[in-house]
């Protein structure tokens, strides 16, 4: 069941478009903001609200990189693996994060605190290597800097 708050936020987005279905991506993002991810049940609930079939909505959901169809940790770390970051030391940063968190890319720590994902170019290439944790951008990364940043999320 969608909450009243989620429904209200989705209704507001629907008014921005000529067709109701156009707001389906916004709707999934709203649910994800509240719950961290988009479950099968949420897909059914949103689809009903959008007059879409759950299958049609899921085909949209799975197209986009940042609609999470599986549960994620409390903080999602997205490390840029595109070309400028690769030149500037992405592989070392990735290995350092994996060692430090004890997980591989695509995994969540046992305590549910962090999920580590690769992400495409974050558009901050003059400050590579870069990553985002949630909505916050971190740039000019070094292993030492990563250690300091992770402590803030401990």
């Amino acid at each position: 069941m969608l909450t009243v708050e989620e429904r209200q936020e989705i209704e507001k987005e629907i008014h921005h478009y000529e067709h109701k279905q156009a707001a389906c991506i916004e709707a999934m993002k709203i649910v994800q903001r509240h719950r961290g991810w988009v479950s099968d049940e949420s897909i059914r609930d949103i689809a009903a609200m959008m007059d879409m079939s759950p299958t049609a909505l899921d085909s949209v959901a799975t197209f986009y990189n940042l609609i999470f169809r599986k549960p994620v940790g409390k903080h999602v770390i997205m490390i840029c693996d595109s070309v400028s970051c690769w030149i500037m030391g992405y592989e070392n940063m990735r290995d350092h994060l994996c060692r430090k968190l004890g997980i591989q890319l695509g995994e969540t720590t046992a305590d549910g605190r962090f999920t580590l994902l690769p992400i495409v170019c974050l558009g901050t290439c003059d400050h590579a290597p870069a990553m985002m944790i949630g909505d916050t951008l971190y740039r000019d990364l070094t292993p030492e800097k990563i250690d300091t940043i992770l402590k803030q999320y401990a």
Binding site: S82, V83, S84, V120, C121, G123, T124, C125, D126
Partner: peptide, 11 residues
Amino acid sequence: DEMEPGTFKDR
């Protein structure tokens, strides 16, 4: 939708 790798001008 600035997503071309290596591009950071519109930001």
